[in-house]
Design a protein around this nucleic acid. Sequence first.
RNA 1: UGGGGCGUGGCCAAGCGGUAAGGCGCGGGACUUUGGAUCCCGUAUUCGGGGGUUCGAAUCCUCCCGCCCCAACCA
Length: 478
Amino acid sequence: MDAIMRDVRWLGFDWGAHLYHASDYFDQLYEWAIQLIKAGRAYVDDLTADEMRETRGTLTQPGSESPCRNRSVEENLDLFERMRRGEFPDGTKTLRAKIDMAAGNVNLRDPVMYRIRKTGHQRTGDKWCLYPMYDWAHGQSDSIERVTHSLCTLEYEDHRPLYDWYLDALGIYHPRQIEFARLNLSHTVMSKRKLLTLVEEGAVSGWDDPRMPTLAGLRRRGYTPESVRDFCERVGIAKADNLVDVALLEHCLREDLNKRALRRMAVLRPLKLVVENYPEGQVEALEAVNNPEDPSAGTRQVPFSRVLYIEQDDFREVPPPKYFRLSPGVEVRLRWAYLVKCTGVAKDPRTGEITEVRCTYDPESRGADSRGRKVKGTIHWVSAAHAADAEVRLYEHLFSVPKPDEAEDPKSVLNPTSLEVLRASKLELSLKDAAPESRFQFERQGYFVADSKNSSPGRLVFNRTVGLRDTWAKIEKA
RNA sequence: UGGGGCGUGGCCAAGCGGUAAGGCGCGGGACUUUGGAUCCCGUAUUCGGGGGUUCGAAUCCUCCCGCCCCAACCA
């Protein structure tokens, strides 16, 4: 209950003084039950659960009436009172509405209103050993609360006739129940049962794992409540079964974060870059814009020096067609800094692995493109001597297919790369004291959030909320 | 003839008798010190299918097809 309230608040809603519990109405419900008994519209039944199932009939055959169905009002009143006093064991008696055992709608075949449960209740303690069924509590609670429209999902359409029947039989204020389709998201599962399985089998770390479609999961992943609300508004609400593409959720997220997230430079998979003609030991502070979408976000200083880290993906010894990043002989812009031209690489003599890239810079090219020289690419970097170390968790969709619900075995379509952990990332120094849950855009890569549970200024852990749109990835694939 | 509901482009979704909104996605272009953002342009002769009514139908009638939900002393 606390978790629900916390999540609802996070989403941006507040019920004010209107926090209601059906248990607040137990006394009223009990009195109404007596009213129905007196009206000959409810009776105490001795049938066991099994017997009740057997006499309910099937979807195509009517059920049969219980032998207890025609007890006198006096006997029913007496029995019901004794049920309340705890004279009978669990499961031995129920109170049923007398409706129609031959109804096409199974919910109307004398539904159970009360069953005996000698257990305590989180709010009413041990006051009751009789508890109302959902259908018997729902409409009446709405009525007490003077709800005008009671919204719920499609499964309850079959329950509406019962909802209406109780209200009419009691002759009380009659709210209107309206059903809508639930929202289904692609590349994940939404049912509580299936999510529980993921948690229990260890496919995820818990209900708040950043890959879970729960509010707690979305929050930990770095989603903003505003983007979730915007998403819901755009999806709309209707009665047709649906499967909304998770790409729409991600679009809403990017749109929101693009306006608000401060930009930072972070090298996820570091590759050393040595600027050969930059003076050894020299350090200069370069000005960088915090958010080009929001001038009021201001600027910051980032340290530049001779040895830097760049992204492994931003260098290719043999560049493929349309590759705009660094490669031997090619010049690129170091974001917020200088134009730099690759002069060669150093390799591990044994493995042949590239250990560092070398280049020269043009001292006149600082900041703006002063010489009018056009360069194809701009890459991000971090000064090696001024970097903050961090663990970065790269998340993707939990399932690799749009409809895991349709898979024979959901486990077989789990995305094996839904989480990749990078333990040696290098971040711009200004990220050193990032507070848990603070969000940033790591330029050219995506939006990231400092993990709420595992990150601290001393040991940074960032979760990738969502990547930036990646046109290059599409070109490279083609 | 158990009962209830739904079918509009790849995914959502307006429209409810006057001649198919919008968003996402996708394709193309402009611009760009994020291959980001932004900005243009394109993307259903047709509304599950057949008949019918009408000057005119996605919208009305009718038959058919398909999909979803219901037989807890769960919610």
